[in-house]
Design a binder for these strands. Structure first.
Lengths: 222, 222
DNA sequence: CTGGCAAATATTGTCGACAATCTTTCGCGA
DNA sequence: TCGCGAAAGATTGTCGACAATATTTGCCAG
């Protein structure tokens, strides 16, 4: 699995949260599906208490939408919503890059270089746009972790990134811009090594703006 | 109350959520206090079910920190944490201003002008730094609402702004920069009227950076 | 008097049950 | 046949109870 797993799994509620989260992100539970408490409780052999906790946590990850007295449904991501998310990514991740330029450690830089090398390998061998998506997410994940801003890390990695992952899984067949992305990642690493906050911020901003424009073109085509 | 109240209050859980949220934000429940489920349940004459739901929601607003098998405690905001929040505000609200320059309605502009006038009145009469804080928050709140980005609105107004309110209540006695802030608000309104996205973004960014620097000076003094 | 261990107490995690509400199904009339 | 309304069914909201864990109290040894 691509995501570092923080969950302690020591309580039933947090365990079922990760289970459902993965199922939703990977598409095993399809968008729009109703999360029926009695049904899921039977399925996973637990009571409704921990389930309700899980559903509320999924709600804070924006993976489900909850309506009082009606229950929870898996979110249906349409393109305009994805655009909204990318605007937020642009703002937050460019900030993360700036902070990372200031705070990243030697170890953090090495991890980024390793991820970049991995991605280049995948590109060369399988030309694989599919696998590339995971490595790309890991790269951004690592930049955010290097920002040192705990609140920012939590916002992006715990609350927003599962949504992005979900979108990636859904649209993994569509054309992406793997090659350009690699160059931009390389530029970012260089800026981080130079400790150039403004440059790192701008590179990340443009990187995400391009990704967003890529998506906006899909809307026009449809 | 300064905040528009979205809560439907139709379920016990959401009702107790707003009650506790207000109590925490206003300082009636002090930072560091443990939110004991049995105690609160007796106090508000409800069972632990809705309470647990409320606590989880407060957790997603970052107002309480939850540790498995230990319970929830009201967050203790130290200055470094507030700095972190202001970095996030800088990123998100400058983006909100840019989007607002594109999307704000005539009605939205009028609301902003009204809030500005209110603030000027308060400044003139009571010279009141205290009341000013509320009007300032309302101003930012209105700009965010005008961005049109639902996800951004939710992130800022539902998840992050209660934290900021809490900090404001705690530090309401400390010197703030009311006068300068008013000028910057005025500049922002002008930029929004011109539909100048870049200018609006920059004004908001500098406005929040200055506020952050104001706080950073407090750290140095202590 | 202090420190640490053990019993007692309180709190959290989980469960099953019941009432209120929503959804679906079925039947009736136009 | 179609649409409306009522009954039946299912689901959510809330509650109280019990087990497992954490915290506090109190005792004893040093």
């Amino acid at each position: 699995m691509a995501t570092p797993e923080h969950s302690l799994e020591d309580t039933l509620g947090s365990h079922i949260t990760t289970t459902l989260r993965n199922a939703i992100v990977c598409g095993d539970i399809k968008p729009g599906t109703k999360l029926s408490e009695p049904k899921l409780a039977r399925e996973y052999h637990i009571s409704r208490g921990p389930l309700r906790e899980a559903i509320r946590r999924l709600e804070s990850m924006k993976l489900v939408k909850y309506v009082p007295r009606e229950g929870a449904r898996v979110i249906t991501l349409d393109l305009p919503q994805v655009i909204e998310i990318y605007h937020i990514r642009e703002a937050l991740e460019s900030k993360a890059a700036a902070l990372a330029a200031h705070n990243i450690s030697e170890d953090g830089l090495n991890k980024l270089k390793h991820l970049l090398a991995l991605a280049e390998q995948h590109m060369a061998t399988s030309g694989g746009a599919y696998i590339q998506a995971d490595v790309d997410i890991d790269f951004h994940y690592q930049v955010i972790q290097s920002s040192g801003n705990q609140m920012l890390i939590h916002l992006l990695c715990e609350e927003l990134y599962y949504l992005i992952r979900m979108y990636r899984y859904q649209s993994s067949l569509q054309p992406n811009r793997s090659h350009n992305a690699l160059i931009e990642h390389q530029q970012l690493i260089m800026a981080l090594e130079q400790r150039d906050e403004q440059l790192a911020e701008m590179i990340m901003r443009k990187h995400i703006v391009r990704a967003r424009q890529n998506i906006e073109q899909q809307i026009l085509k449809s």
